[in-house]
Design a protein around this nucleic acid. Sequence first.
DNA 1: TTGTATAATTGATACTGTGTCAATAAATCA
DNA 2: TGATTTATTGACACAGTATCAATTATACAA
Lengths: 187, 187
Amino acid sequence: MPNNENGKVDPRIKRTRRMFKAALISLIQENGDINKLTVQNIADRAELNRATFYLHYRDIDDLIEQMLNEMLDELHKTMKPLSEDNPPIAKGSRKQVVAFLELFYHNTGLYKVMLENKDFRRRVYEILLDIITFWAEDRKANGRPFKVPNEIIAASTLGIVSWWLQEGTTYSPSYLANMIISMVNGN
Amino acid sequence: MPNNENGKVDPRIKRTRRMFKAALISLIQENGDINKLTVQNIADRAELNRATFYLHYRDIDDLIEQMLNEMLDELHKTMKPLSEDNPPIAKGSRKQVVAFLELFYHNTGLYKVMLENKDFRRRVYEILLDIITFWAEDRKANGRPFKVPNEIIAASTLGIVSWWLQEGTTYSPSYLANMIISMVNGN
DNA sequence: TTGTATAATTGATACTGTGTCAATAAATCA
DNA sequence: TGATTTATTGACACAGTATCAATTATACAA
């Protein structure tokens, strides 16, 4: 973001980008499809000129990528403090899974659509892999290592979360966390 | 498909549709993306006129849907005889999972891209759910029912298969089947 | 507070892709 | 062979993309 010499960002820029992002979310929630967006629709919804869009983003994918990065930052921010718990304990892990699921739960419509994006999926997978790797080390130290590779556990969990969002999140985050942990623990 | 009075299909029609479908597969394998197709590209690759495309398909989504149905028929055909094994046994189930994975394995490039399609994913999920439901009944009858709902097992498996294809199918179908079964069985 | 720098708007333009059509050519069928 | 169906061709109206120069509006700094 272009700054002036004091390190401040022109409020017009902040406002414009906020408007475009809000418009994107609004349209995604509305038609539940990420592939039917047009620059004109986004500009109309943001109540800004279409040419203004191109002053800030290369194209729609560029806007989506920036959006996606902000959502991933939020995910990371929620997960990181928990994974730095010391010492790591089984209860802490469950808490972490629930916190993770709640993030999705509180923005079902948005995350459901965003998970259609390959890049977003890949990076959520990586966050999951981080959590699980951390968890796996703890389990190994306690003499009951996971029976399947961490990558497969992460992929499995992503599959469950995607399905859960698609299906309408009828299970609570807490219940789903139990199911995930039960599958992973093998009992 | 339009038939004449003898029930035969004009060979020009068969040829044309075969060409369009081959062109679609070829382009998908080439750019690994289902969202960057144009009618002109497909027609060029098929060595047919663009207008001819519209004689056979409403639009690109229509062509993809027909493609998708053919692939699902193939999946069903592979799965059905196995799920009618009588009596159903644990070994039979493993064989079924391997057969399922091998189908994907032998056409990685195509299935990988097709699994980006929401509709295709939903229907593969349903096939998996069928298999697992069948399996679950057997387990229940033997007094060791699954600990998590069938839907969650199906979603989990779909997540693993999607990841496996994305990642480049480094594990063999047989090994991956073991991992899936291990997760499901919880041991 | 005023001048200047920056951002946003407007209207224009060239371009790519869609979907349809009428006229014509080519292949199939009876 | 003649009639019928399919495929090709070129044209058209349309929607959306991406960029530009000229103008208007807003923010910042002296």
